[in-house]
Design a protein around this nucleic acid. Structure first.
Lengths: 125, 125
DNA sequence: ACGCGGTTTAGATAACTGTCAACCTAGACG
DNA sequence: CGTCTAGGTTGACAGTTATCTAAACCGCGT
Protein backbone atom coordinates (compact mmCIF):
# COMPACT_ATOMS: atom_id res chain seq x y z
CA UNK A 1 0.00 0.00 0.00
CA UNK A 2 2.00 2.90 -1.28
CA UNK A 3 1.49 6.15 0.50
CA UNK A 4 2.81 8.86 -1.72
CA UNK A 5 1.30 11.67 0.35
CA UNK A 6 2.07 12.69 3.89
CA UNK A 7 1.48 10.11 6.63
CA UNK A 8 -1.86 11.58 7.52
CA UNK A 9 -4.00 8.81 6.15
CA UNK A 10 -5.99 7.87 9.20
CA UNK A 11 -6.51 11.25 10.74
CA UNK A 12 -6.82 14.52 8.95
CA UNK A 13 -4.46 16.86 10.69
CA UNK A 14 -5.50 19.69 8.42
CA UNK A 15 -9.01 19.70 9.84
CA UNK A 16 -9.98 22.38 12.27
CA UNK A 17 -12.11 20.14 14.41
CA UNK A 18 -10.64 18.10 17.25
CA UNK A 19 -9.75 14.60 16.18
CA UNK A 20 -10.29 12.85 19.45
CA UNK A 21 -11.23 13.24 23.09
CA UNK A 22 -8.64 14.49 25.57
CA UNK A 23 -5.87 12.29 26.80
CA UNK A 24 -7.37 12.01 30.23
CA UNK A 25 -10.78 10.90 29.07
CA UNK A 26 -10.08 7.68 27.25
CA UNK A 27 -7.16 5.69 26.01
CA UNK A 28 -6.24 6.79 22.55
CA UNK A 29 -5.95 4.06 19.91
CA UNK A 30 -2.57 3.07 18.55
CA UNK A 31 -3.27 4.57 15.12
CA UNK A 32 -4.11 7.93 16.63
CA UNK A 33 -0.97 7.88 18.72
CA UNK A 34 1.10 6.98 15.67
CA UNK A 35 -0.24 9.98 13.82
CA UNK A 36 -0.10 12.57 16.58
CA UNK A 37 3.21 11.57 18.12
CA UNK A 38 5.28 13.00 15.25
CA UNK A 39 3.66 16.38 15.84
CA UNK A 40 4.73 16.36 19.49
CA UNK A 41 8.11 15.05 18.46
CA UNK A 42 8.53 17.99 16.11
CA UNK A 43 7.86 20.32 19.02
CA UNK A 44 10.34 18.40 21.13
CA UNK A 45 13.31 20.50 20.14
CA UNK A 46 14.07 23.90 21.64
CA UNK A 47 14.90 25.46 18.29
CA UNK A 48 11.75 24.18 16.63
CA UNK A 49 9.66 25.25 19.61
CA UNK A 50 11.04 28.75 19.32
CA UNK A 51 10.58 28.73 15.55
CA UNK A 52 6.99 27.67 16.06
CA UNK A 53 6.39 30.46 18.55
CA UNK A 54 8.03 33.04 16.30
CA UNK A 55 5.87 31.96 13.38
CA UNK A 56 2.65 31.78 15.36
CA UNK A 57 3.21 35.11 17.05
CA UNK A 58 4.44 36.96 13.99
CA UNK A 59 2.35 39.88 12.76
CA UNK A 60 -0.13 38.58 10.21
CA UNK A 61 0.43 35.05 11.42
CA UNK A 62 3.31 34.44 9.07
CA UNK A 63 7.06 34.85 9.29
CA UNK A 64 9.75 35.16 6.64
CA UNK A 65 12.66 32.77 6.76
CA UNK A 66 14.92 35.76 6.33
CA UNK A 67 13.70 36.92 9.74
CA UNK A 68 13.83 33.51 11.38
CA UNK A 69 17.35 32.49 10.40
CA UNK A 70 19.30 35.40 11.94
CA UNK A 71 17.43 34.90 15.22
CA UNK A 72 19.48 31.79 15.97
CA UNK A 73 23.15 31.08 16.05
CA UNK A 74 22.75 28.30 13.55
CA UNK A 75 23.51 28.03 9.88
CA UNK A 76 20.87 28.54 7.21
CA UNK A 77 20.59 24.89 6.20
CA UNK A 78 20.05 23.85 9.81
CA UNK A 79 17.11 26.22 10.21
CA UNK A 80 15.77 25.00 6.89
CA UNK A 81 15.94 21.41 8.11
CA UNK A 82 14.05 22.28 11.28
CA UNK A 83 11.42 24.08 9.25
CA UNK A 84 11.11 21.03 7.04
CA UNK A 85 10.52 18.91 10.12
CA UNK A 86 7.76 21.25 11.25
CA UNK A 87 6.31 21.18 7.73
CA UNK A 88 6.32 17.39 7.53
CA UNK A 89 4.69 17.20 10.95
CA UNK A 90 1.84 19.30 9.57
CA UNK A 91 2.47 22.14 11.99
CA UNK A 92 3.28 24.84 9.44
CA UNK A 93 2.70 25.72 5.81
CA UNK A 94 5.27 27.28 3.52
CA UNK A 95 4.54 29.74 0.76
CA UNK A 96 6.90 31.45 -1.63
CA UNK A 97 6.18 35.04 -2.53
CA UNK A 98 8.82 36.54 -4.75
CA UNK A 99 12.26 35.94 -3.41
CA UNK A 100 11.20 35.16 0.12
CA UNK A 101 9.51 32.17 1.70
CA UNK A 102 6.90 32.71 4.38
CA UNK A 103 5.84 30.19 7.00
CA UNK A 104 2.43 30.10 8.59
CA UNK A 105 1.23 28.08 11.57
CA UNK A 106 -1.61 25.64 11.09
CA UNK A 107 -4.00 26.51 13.82
CA UNK A 108 -6.04 23.36 13.26
CA UNK A 109 -3.50 20.83 14.43
CA UNK A 110 -2.38 23.16 17.20
CA UNK A 111 -5.91 23.11 18.54
CA UNK A 112 -6.01 19.34 18.25
CA UNK A 113 -2.83 18.91 20.24
CA UNK A 114 -3.95 21.42 22.84
CA UNK A 115 -7.31 19.69 23.13
CA UNK A 116 -5.61 16.37 23.62
CA UNK A 117 -3.60 17.70 26.52
CA UNK A 118 -6.45 19.60 28.07
CA UNK A 119 -7.57 18.00 31.27
CA UNK A 120 -11.26 18.12 31.79
CA UNK A 121 -11.56 18.27 35.57
CA UNK A 122 -11.84 14.69 36.66
CA UNK A 123 -8.23 14.01 37.54
CA UNK A 124 -7.67 16.69 40.12
CA UNK A 125 -10.51 16.78 42.65
CA UNK B 1 27.48 25.85 36.51
CA UNK B 2 26.67 22.42 37.74
CA UNK B 3 23.04 21.45 37.85
CA UNK B 4 22.76 18.39 39.98
CA UNK B 5 18.98 18.44 40.09
CA UNK B 6 16.54 17.89 37.27
CA UNK B 7 16.70 20.40 34.41
CA UNK B 8 13.78 22.33 35.82
CA UNK B 9 15.77 25.13 37.30
CA UNK B 10 14.33 28.08 35.49
CA UNK B 11 10.71 27.07 35.31
CA UNK B 12 8.78 25.07 37.82
CA UNK B 13 7.01 22.37 35.89
CA UNK B 14 5.36 21.12 39.01
CA UNK B 15 3.38 24.30 39.42
CA UNK B 16 -0.25 24.30 38.49
CA UNK B 17 -0.23 27.77 37.05
CA UNK B 18 0.65 28.43 33.45
CA UNK B 19 4.28 29.29 33.00
CA UNK B 20 4.00 31.50 29.99
CA UNK B 21 1.67 33.02 27.44
CA UNK B 22 0.53 30.89 24.50
CA UNK B 23 2.82 30.14 21.61
CA UNK B 24 0.89 32.39 19.28
CA UNK B 25 1.00 35.44 21.50
CA UNK B 26 4.68 36.10 21.88
CA UNK B 27 7.98 34.50 21.12
CA UNK B 28 9.05 32.28 23.96
CA UNK B 29 12.54 32.85 25.31
CA UNK B 30 15.27 30.31 24.71
CA UNK B 31 15.37 29.17 28.33
CA UNK B 32 11.66 28.43 28.35
CA UNK B 33 11.96 26.49 25.12
CA UNK B 34 14.85 24.51 26.55
CA UNK B 35 12.77 23.50 29.55
CA UNK B 36 9.48 22.73 27.81
CA UNK B 37 10.87 20.99 24.74
CA UNK B 38 11.80 17.81 26.67
CA UNK B 39 8.18 17.48 27.77
CA UNK B 40 6.97 17.60 24.17
CA UNK B 41 9.76 15.27 23.18
CA UNK B 42 8.61 12.77 25.77
CA UNK B 43 5.16 12.84 24.19
CA UNK B 44 6.70 12.43 20.76
CA UNK B 45 6.63 8.66 20.85
CA UNK B 46 3.49 6.63 20.08
CA UNK B 47 4.07 4.23 22.96
CA UNK B 48 4.61 7.02 25.48
CA UNK B 49 1.60 8.91 24.16
CA UNK B 50 -0.54 5.84 24.70
CA UNK B 51 0.99 5.22 28.11
CA UNK B 52 0.22 8.80 29.02
CA UNK B 53 -3.37 8.44 27.91
CA UNK B 54 -3.80 5.16 29.74
CA UNK B 55 -2.44 6.69 32.93
CA UNK B 56 -4.44 9.87 32.66
CA UNK B 57 -7.66 8.10 31.81
CA UNK B 58 -7.29 5.32 34.34
CA UNK B 59 -9.88 5.12 37.11
CA UNK B 60 -8.63 7.11 40.07
CA UNK B 61 -6.13 8.89 37.85
CA UNK B 62 -3.46 6.28 38.37
CA UNK B 63 -2.42 3.12 36.61
CA UNK B 64 -0.42 0.11 37.73
CA UNK B 65 2.57 -0.94 35.69
CA UNK B 66 1.23 -4.45 35.81
CA UNK B 67 -1.72 -3.21 33.76
CA UNK B 68 0.34 -1.06 31.42
CA UNK B 69 2.96 -3.58 30.39
CA UNK B 70 0.70 -6.28 28.92
CA UNK B 71 -1.11 -3.67 26.85
CA UNK B 72 1.85 -3.43 24.48
CA UNK B 73 3.82 -5.97 22.56
CA UNK B 74 7.03 -4.80 24.15
CA UNK B 75 9.23 -6.24 26.83
CA UNK B 76 8.99 -5.13 30.43
CA UNK B 77 12.25 -3.21 30.50
CA UNK B 78 11.23 -1.26 27.42
CA UNK B 79 7.98 -0.10 29.01
CA UNK B 80 9.90 0.74 32.16
CA UNK B 81 12.30 2.83 30.13
CA UNK B 82 9.47 4.74 28.49
CA UNK B 83 7.91 5.36 31.88
CA UNK B 84 11.24 6.65 33.12
CA UNK B 85 11.35 9.06 30.21
CA UNK B 86 7.89 10.35 31.10
CA UNK B 87 8.97 10.62 34.73
CA UNK B 88 12.12 12.58 33.92
CA UNK B 89 10.10 14.89 31.70
CA UNK B 90 7.92 15.69 34.71
CA UNK B 91 4.78 14.32 33.10
CA UNK B 92 4.07 11.57 35.60
CA UNK B 93 4.78 10.62 39.17
CA UNK B 94 5.58 7.12 40.37
CA UNK B 95 4.58 5.68 43.71
CA UNK B 96 5.24 2.25 45.11
CA UNK B 97 2.49 0.66 47.15
CA UNK B 98 3.33 -2.83 48.25
CA UNK B 99 4.51 -4.92 45.38
CA UNK B 100 3.12 -2.74 42.67
CA UNK B 101 4.13 0.62 41.28
CA UNK B 102 1.47 3.12 40.33
CA UNK B 103 1.87 5.98 37.92
CA UNK B 104 -0.11 9.19 38.07
CA UNK B 105 -0.30 12.01 35.54
CA UNK B 106 0.78 15.48 36.60
CA UNK B 107 -2.09 17.65 35.53
CA UNK B 108 -0.10 20.84 36.13
CA UNK B 109 2.41 20.47 33.36
CA UNK B 110 -0.26 19.05 31.06
CA UNK B 111 -2.20 22.27 31.51
CA UNK B 112 0.93 24.28 30.86
CA UNK B 113 1.63 22.49 27.60
CA UNK B 114 -1.99 22.73 26.52
CA UNK B 115 -2.04 26.42 27.33
CA UNK B 116 1.08 26.96 25.32
CA UNK B 117 -0.51 25.38 22.26
CA UNK B 118 -3.85 27.07 22.69
CA UNK B 119 -4.41 29.64 20.03
CA UNK B 120 -6.16 32.73 21.23
CA UNK B 121 -8.14 33.80 18.16
CA UNK B 122 -5.91 36.23 16.41
CA UNK B 123 -4.32 33.92 13.87
CA UNK B 124 -7.42 32.81 11.99
CA UNK B 125 -9.60 35.77 11.05
C1' DA C 1 14.75 -18.26 51.72
C1' DC C 2 12.10 -18.34 47.61
C1' DG C 3 9.38 -16.19 43.93
C1' DC C 4 7.24 -12.33 41.71
C1' DG C 5 7.07 -7.45 40.11
C1' DG C 6 9.97 -3.55 38.25
C1' DT C 7 14.00 -1.32 37.55
C1' DT C 8 18.67 -0.81 36.07
C1' DT C 9 22.80 -1.80 33.30
C1' DA C 10 25.23 -3.01 29.02
C1' DG C 11 25.33 -3.39 24.28
C1' DA C 12 23.96 -3.20 19.08
C1' DT C 13 21.18 -0.89 15.84
C1' DA C 14 18.67 3.02 14.20
C1' DA C 15 17.48 7.94 14.17
C1' DC C 16 18.42 12.70 15.01
C1' DT C 17 21.31 17.25 14.88
C1' DG C 18 24.52 20.00 12.85
C1' DT C 19 27.78 21.62 8.92
C1' DC C 20 29.74 21.95 4.12
C1' DA C 21 28.87 21.72 -0.69
C1' DA C 22 25.84 21.82 -4.59
C1' DC C 23 21.47 23.05 -6.58
C1' DC C 24 17.23 25.81 -7.67
C1' DT C 25 14.45 29.98 -7.96
C1' DA C 26 13.65 34.90 -8.45
C1' DG C 27 15.01 39.48 -9.27
C1' DA C 28 18.90 42.99 -10.95
C1' DC C 29 22.10 44.39 -14.17
C1' DG C 30 24.60 45.01 -18.44
C1' DC D 1 18.64 37.68 -23.38
C1' DG D 2 22.40 35.91 -20.77
C1' DT D 3 24.59 36.41 -16.40
C1' DC D 4 25.27 37.64 -11.84
C1' DT D 5 24.02 37.83 -7.03
C1' DA D 6 21.02 36.75 -2.99
C1' DG D 7 17.59 33.76 -0.63
C1' DG D 8 16.34 28.76 0.53
C1' DT D 9 16.30 24.07 -0.10
C1' DT D 10 18.31 19.61 -0.76
C1' DG D 11 21.88 15.93 -0.35
C1' DA D 12 25.82 13.69 1.88
C1' DC D 13 28.63 13.28 5.82
C1' DA D 14 30.41 13.02 11.14
C1' DG D 15 29.04 13.09 15.95
C1' DT D 16 25.62 12.43 19.19
C1' DT D 17 21.48 10.51 21.07
C1' DA D 18 17.48 7.42 21.28
C1' DT D 19 15.25 2.67 21.05
C1' DC D 20 15.16 -1.99 21.89
C1' DT D 21 16.54 -6.78 23.93
C1' DA D 22 18.94 -9.72 27.21
C1' DA D 23 20.92 -10.31 31.67
C1' DA D 24 21.72 -8.82 36.29
C1' DC D 25 19.86 -6.41 40.17
C1' DC D 26 16.59 -4.50 44.19
C1' DG D 27 12.14 -4.51 46.88
C1' DC D 28 8.33 -6.76 48.80
C1' DG D 29 5.23 -10.50 50.24
C1' DT D 30 4.59 -15.44 51.14
Amino acid sequence: MPKSAAPLTLIDLTADEPCCPPLAESRIPAETAAVLAPAFKALGDPVRLQLMSMIASAPGGEACVCDLTPAFELSGPTISHHLKTLREAGLVDAERRGSWVYYRARSGIMRQLAGLLTIGSATTP
